[in-house]
Amino acid sequence: MNLTLTEILFFVLSAITIISGALVIFSRNPVYSVLYLIVTFFAIAGHYILLNAQFLAAVHVIVYAGAIMVLFLFVIMMLNLNETTEPKTALWSKFAAVIAGLTFLPLLVGALKTSEAVVMTQPQNSDIGLVKTLGQVLFTDYLVPFELSSVLFLSAMVGAVLLGKKSTEETN
């Protein structure tokens, strides 16, 4: 079986994604979970590059690995969470979770297998992932959702600040 370079890249990236994703779940220390999640996100960014979605790969690295994960790491270090503060899970609960998760997986894969084969048009232009194409679509067809997302960000910012600050009765 001869593998092309692209297939080798796909398998290596998939292996990194799945292994580090499993380590996110099963590592005891929350800081290690965050670091493994960053590895997962970088592998997914590699998948985006393989799929010719260069702009999304860049945004993914900037937003997820850059902003969201720093936020997670900051909160974990501020709350000083480590292995000793980790909540204990009962053994039967872990057992039930693993069984439920492992039965969910074949369900999804089986649903994929039994679904009708999608007739794919042969992809012609491979530059749909570039900033120029995406920007044209974003600012013409999807202009209203784009403006609405700014309202979402404003409300999220107000909510985060309100929730995060100490109440005035507490400080007085």
Binding site: L56, Q124, G129, L134, Y142, S149, A160
Partner: peptide, 24 residues
């Protein structure tokens, strides 16, 4: 990528925006 349709990538862009707000 398989349908040569940039609409889905714009959708992913919005999902990332919502995820960032959700995490905050």
């Amino acid at each position: 990528a398989h349908h040569s349709d940039p609409g889905a990538q714009v959708f992913v862009f919005f999902i990332m925006a919502v995820a960032a707000a959700e995490v905050a």
